[in-house]
Amino acid sequence: MRNGSPRARILGLLLAAFAVLLGATGCAGPGYDRTQQYFIAGGGIAGIYFNYGDQYAQALHRELGISVSVSETNGSVDNLQRVASGRALLGFAQADTAADAITGTGSFDTPLPLRAVARVYDESVQVVVPADSDVREISDLAGRTVSLGSATSGVQVIASRVLAASGVAPDRIENPALGLDESIAALRRGEIAAFFWVGGFPTPSIERLARTQRIRLLPIDAATVSRVNARHSGVYRLTEFPVGTYGSETPTTTMTVPNYLVAAEDAPEALITDATRTLFASRATIARKVPAAELLDRRDAIFTAPLELHPGAAKYYVDARS
């Protein structure tokens, strides 16, 4: 990236603004309690959230000497609620669900006091059907049994939006609300026609499914992505699964959403600074077990709109820039 590029100039301006903010509010906190038990809100044990959180918790214990463990949860909505209520120090969430959380819309009755630590990686919407299914596009799912993800998950939020943008009303889908492992098992047994998943790809559990059963991914086209963006937070982008993904013979277009690591607004500043530093310092170690961690990039990590950065995280980025 050239120093004179537009993205570099934006990055410099943002970091300068963070520096002013930190100077105005003061960045020297009272420290934090190293005897406390901390939690990271992950997701289902088959997903990247949980495994990323588990490896990150181990890194925090090694580097900071604090007791940290990952919690199995139902996904983004659950994670954000846990972080906001203090039941978790940190949590993973999709950007669209986080946007709903801070405005008190969608699955949230009131705004939640949340801040971003980093944009960690982007996730892809994966709609899986058996290879011999007569379902060829999203609109074909009407009138069928489809798992839209577990209750209070970000998958449920995104799946509902994709269906609506494809002209499929919620009452035209029978949704058993299964987690990823349960969805895979139900597809094997022929109990569901398809399932939605939102995560890094390839997702290990779906890869294992593809080794024993031929599957396909349904396309989500540019027009559908545009309709979802027009109705919601505008954070979605178009991408493509390459040839070979889960045994595919052709590329498949789909929708992506950024994924954030979040903290409560009142989380200890010094702890969040150290946690952010550890996140980046341990990237290579975590990536040995969770390849998605390799996508963490300090230049992109600060782009967490509409969430503001936590002051502790902002301090790390300013210090790292100097």
Score class of each variant (00 low, 15 high):
Ser160Ala: 15
Ser160Gln: 14
Arg161Thr: 15
Ala164His: 10
Ala165Arg: 00
Ser166Ile: 06
Val168Gln: 01
Ala169Trp: 06
Pro170Ile: 14
Asp171Lys: 03
Ile173Ala: 01
Glu174Trp: 05
Ala177His: 07
Leu178Thr: 07
Leu180Gln: 03
Asp181Leu: 12
Asp181Tyr: 12
Ser183Val: 12
Ser183Cys: 11
Ser183Asp: 13
Ile184Phe: 11
Ile184Tyr: 02
Ala185Tyr: 07
Ala185Gln: 14
Leu187Glu: 05
Leu187Trp: 08
Leu187Asp: 13
Arg188Phe: 14
Arg189Thr: 09
Arg189Met: 05
Gly190Asp: 10
Glu191Ala: 07
Ala193Phe: 01
Phe195Pro: 00
Phe196His: 04
Val198Gln: 09
Gly200Phe: 03
Thr203Lys: 09
Pro204Phe: 12
Pro204Cys: 11
Pro204Arg: 00
Ile206Pro: 04
Glu207Ile: 08
Glu207Pro: 07
Leu209Glu: 13
Leu209Gly: 06
Ala210Gln: 03
Ala210Cys: 12
Arg211Asp: 15
Thr212Arg: 07
Gln213Arg: 14
Ile215Ala: 02
Leu217Thr: 04
Leu217Val: 01
Leu217Cys: 09
Leu217Ile: 05
Leu218Thr: 02
Pro219Thr: 09
Asp221Ile: 01
Asp221Met: 01
Asp221Ser: 07
Ala222Gln: 12
Ala223Glu: 15
Ala223Thr: 14
Thr224Pro: 04
Arg227His: 06
Val228Gln: 05
Val228Met: 04
Asn229Met: 00
Asn229Tyr: 10
Ala230Leu: 13
Arg231Lys: 14
Val235Thr: 11
Tyr236Thr: 08
Tyr236Pro: 07
Tyr236Asn: 12
Tyr236Glu: 13
Arg237Asn: 15
Leu238Val: 12
Thr239Ser: 12
Pro242Cys: 06
Glu249Val: 12
Glu249Trp: 05
Glu249Gly: 15
Glu249Asp: 15
Pro251Thr: 10
Pro251Cys: 13
Pro251Asp: 08
Thr252Pro: 07
Thr253Trp: 04
Thr253Pro: 02
Thr253Gln: 13
Thr254Arg: 00
Thr254Phe: 03
Met255His: 04
Thr256Gln: 06
Thr256Ile: 13
Thr256Pro: 00
Thr256Ala: 07
Thr256His: 06
Val257Asp: 04
Val257Gly: 04
Pro258Tyr: 09
Tyr260Trp: 10
Val262Tyr: 03
Ala263Lys: 00
Glu265Ile: 02
Asp266Gly: 09
Asp266Trp: 14
Ala267Met: 07
Ala270Gly: 15
Ala270Cys: 10
Leu271Arg: 06
Leu271Gln: 08
Ile272Asp: 08
Thr273Gln: 11
Asp274Leu: 06
Ala275His: 10
Ala275Leu: 06
Thr276Pro: 01
Thr276Ala: 10
Thr278Pro: 12
Leu279Ala: 10
Leu279Tyr: 12
Leu279Arg: 03
Leu279Cys: 07
Phe280Tyr: 14
Phe280His: 04
